[in-house]
Amino acid sequence: MSKLSDVACLSKHHFARAFREATGTPPYRFISERRLDHALNLLKDSRLSLADIAYICQFSSQATFTRAFRRHVGTSPGEYRHLSRA
């Protein structure tokens, strides 16, 4: 988030407050949701491994990716891939 606040020429706190007011979502959640949306598309449209998708979407590990994905979607990435191809 510090890179974004630097680009906007605002302090981190002011940027986070202004971002939340403009979008209704804190910057961290907004970025996390975009990463998970990218993962959803990769799961549907590619045969990449879950570890590769976690890396591409900048998660620290496949386990971290799986936990975040399950919270966001309600199912594991593997189950989602299986259901989206059925």
Rank of each mutant, 00 (worst) to 15 (best):
75 T>S: 15
39 A>N: 01
17 R>F: 06
59 F>C: 11
30 F>C: 10
38 H>F: 07
40 L>M: 13
7 V>G: 07
20 R>Y: 06
19 F>G: 04
66 T>E: 08
56 I>Q: 02
33 E>F: 04
38 H>R: 15
10 L>V: 03
29 R>C: 03
75 T>R: 14
65 F>V: 02
70 R>P: 04
74 G>Q: 09
13 H>M: 07
51 A>F: 02
49 S>L: 00
86 A>P: 08
28 Y>L: 05
7 V>E: 14
80 Y>F: 15
84 S>D: 11
42 L>V: 06
86 A>K: 15
36 L>H: 01
72 H>I: 14
23 T>I: 05
78 G>F: 02
79 E>Q: 11
72 H>A: 15
16 A>I: 06
56 I>M: 03
31 I>K: 04
54 A>P: 02
38 H>T: 12
85 R>H: 15
71 R>F: 03
7 V>R: 08
12 K>Y: 08
26 P>V: 06
21 E>Y: 07
66 T>L: 07
3 K>D: 13
8 A>T: 10
42 L>R: 04
43 L>R: 01
11 S>Y: 11
35 R>G: 01
11 S>F: 10
8 A>I: 11
15 F>M: 08
49 S>N: 00
67 R>P: 05
10 L>F: 05
3 K>M: 13
68 A>D: 05
41 N>W: 05
50 L>Y: 00
42 L>A: 09
9 C>K: 14
58 Q>R: 14
79 E>P: 02
73 V>P: 02
39 A>V: 01
4 L>C: 11
85 R>I: 13
54 A>K: 00
21 E>C: 07
62 Q>C: 01
75 T>H: 09
54 A>W: 00
70 R>T: 06
58 Q>P: 05
76 S>D: 07
41 N>P: 04
76 S>F: 04
82 H>Q: 15
22 A>H: 04
8 A>D: 08
18 A>G: 08
64 T>Y: 12
48 L>V: 03
20 R>P: 03
56 I>C: 05
17 R>E: 10
78 G>C: 05
52 D>I: 02
42 L>H: 05
29 R>V: 09
44 K>L: 08
37 D>M: 01
50 L>W: 00
74 G>C: 11
27 P>E: 02
76 S>W: 02
51 A>D: 07
76 S>Y: 04
